[in-house]
Nucleic acid binder design. Structure first.
Lengths: 343, 343
DNA sequence: CTGTTAGCGCATTCAT
DNA sequence: ATGAATGCGCTAACAG
């Protein structure tokens, strides 16, 4: 470490004027150097570069974004960083790095109430200045026409709105239900997801279609709300599984719910899959780690994240993208499903 | 949808002046209303609020952060969103939500070369304005004294610098190596991690200590560089495992490396754990999904992320925090380790 | 109670 | 080739 290398800046962050002062030039000159604009004498250029190096100056994303139109930063807006959103993030990160974009994942404060509208708030706070475009994960309300391109992942129900990417919830849930039917189950319960998301409605529809296809009469008392959440599902499952006519199998709308069912079964002393088969949807990391490992419909979460990002980049370049992209879901059989008890 | 509800704003983002114009007041007045300051007539307040609602206005994070000193946003700086960083993120997110902070996870562009210095660049770009404090994940260079509080997770080697959180790499690697020794192994190889990270050096040290403790002579040809990466480790393992005197067990410095060893073994037709035992470190989600499921030293990644965030919040409040926090690592035995062949 | 003035850090005219 | 002036959206301090 050199003895007296760096003339300590005022204190705190090094700003462009610190550099200008130290190099004996004006602020605009430094700006030109840093941004590689023409019109700077070689000697000046070199001197400024040296000072920039010494002081460790980097342009403030905030300040420059306020002036410039593009920041080269893409935003991913989530309600919360949990298993699902974070898997998408990994895929998006790879795609962003490949395309030379920086990634800013943002989780705003969810308002006390039903957390509805977080996506609008987050988008408003970041759009127009900080980020060039946004990927929004499971938006629950209609995204208003915005100043920046937006791609949604697994969005709310309803048409219109931005381009979306998701997996084939309808087909996937048909396969999931059929898997249980093929194991001999006929009393199959379903835990619905969040009713404000299209995926939840499609998964229930697929469940009903597969039942119908197999000639199994639909029993409305076997369909309960799980809200895509472990705790809520566990509570409801406790009640369901103590009924005299309890089901022999459960199709949960996502893995978090399925894990809730597993918890309830464990609490009641029911063995899975001997006494009860359980299948989920998503294949988040927790699915493989559950006891027993969860059979589930795997969504290609990495690919979905990457695809959404690539579409956004296409939009940023002025290109066109398909309105709806559905990626296939795949059955992954693990240890939580088996033949009907007593067969 | 009401017919002619909203007077379309100029176009693009709705700014504070759009609101001011529509409400017939000055810009600062809107600012006061939005920020809940006193000194606004009830009638004006109501009118402004209505317009804000109609136009869907939200203050720009960028602009307000430039003026204000605190943004209520905490930054998490990572080189890339991958399994490790993303697990930390989940824990941090929970802690942030609990404390009422918003989270901004940022992955800048890694410079072409060795990606050294990304943390300094990211920090400079965000600090001072956008974020109140930062958690930096596996920084590889010394973080200069900055204007904002910083906590590092699993940092580079060397002293000084910000407060850090990590898990007990030394003790953990002792346990890992001992596990292999107890299974009867004596020829145990080690894949080192990135030499610029303290955790990698400690893991190698623990390995050597456990060997010494068991009276096993240290063989330098059994220690190779894996760089914490799957591909690099797989390539090196291919060579190692075709030697005549190949080891019967491998301790990889992290799970990504261990998975590389698994790949190489598979490619060579070696059965795990019958022909070769493999143990990793971290317990990222991929560990449980590997074939066979990977025995590993589990780091409490959620807790580490949450702990770092809580320490940062303490610092933001002007409090003191310990210089170094080590959380325990725990042996998780899965299917990739077994007794020595032929015992 | 409200509007005017100033300035956060930077990039962009336009002069010189 | 360089510097002075201007404004991005917003808020703090003051003036009216």
């Amino acid at each position: 470490m050199p003895a007296d290398a760096i003339p300590a800046p005022t204190f705190g962050r090094v700003t462009i004027s610190d550099v200008a002062r130290a190099a004996g030039v004006s602020v605009p000159t430094v700006s030109k150097v840093v941004n590689g604009r023409y019109g700077v004498a070689p000697a000046t250029l070199k001197r400024v570069m040296t000072v920039v190096e010494e002081l460790g100056y980097e342009t403030s994303l905030v300040a420059s974004s306020l002036r410039r139109q593009r920041t080269n930063v893409i935003g991913i807006l989530v309600a919360e960083f949990e298993s699902f959103s974070v898997e998408l993030l990994k895929g998006a990160s790879a795609a962003a790095a490949e395309a030379g974009y920086e990634l800013l994942a943002y989780s705003g404060l969810v308002a006390g109430n039903g957390s509805v509208g977080w996506e609008r708030r987050s988008l408003s706070r970041l759009a127009g200045t900080l980020i060039d475009g946004a990927v929004i994960v499971t938006p629950t309300v209609l995204i208003p026409t915005t100043s920046i391109p937006v791609v949604a992942i697994d969005p709310h129900t309803g048409q219109g709105g931005p381009a979306t990417v998701d997996s084939d919830s309808l087909g996937g849930s048909r396969v999931a239900t059929r898997h249980l039917i093929e194991l001999g189950h006929r009393r199959i319960a379903h835990f619905r997801g969040r009713s404000d998301l299209a995926s939840a409605q499609l998964r229930e529809a697929g469940y009903r279609e597969s039942l119908a296809e197999a000639g199994i009469e639909f029993d409305p008392t076997l369909v309960l709300d799980g809200g895509y959440q472990t705790a809520q599902t566990a509570a409801a499952a406790l009640e369901l599984l103590t009924r005299a006519d309890r089901p022999t199998a459960v199709f949960a709308a996502n893995d978090m719910s399925a894990i809730g069912v597993l918890q309830a079964a464990h609490e009641l002393g029911l063995r899975v899959p001997e006494d009860l088969s359980v299948i989920g949807f998503d294949d988040i990391p927790e699915a493989a780690r559950a006891t027993p490992p969860l059979t589930t419909m795997a969504q290609p979460l990495h690919d979905i994240g990457a695809q959404a990002l690539r579409m956004l980049i296409e939009l940023l370049g002025g290109g066109d993208v398909p309105e709806r992209v559905h990626l296939p879901a795949k059955l992954v059989v693990r240890g939580s499903t088996g033949p009907v008890p007593g067969q």
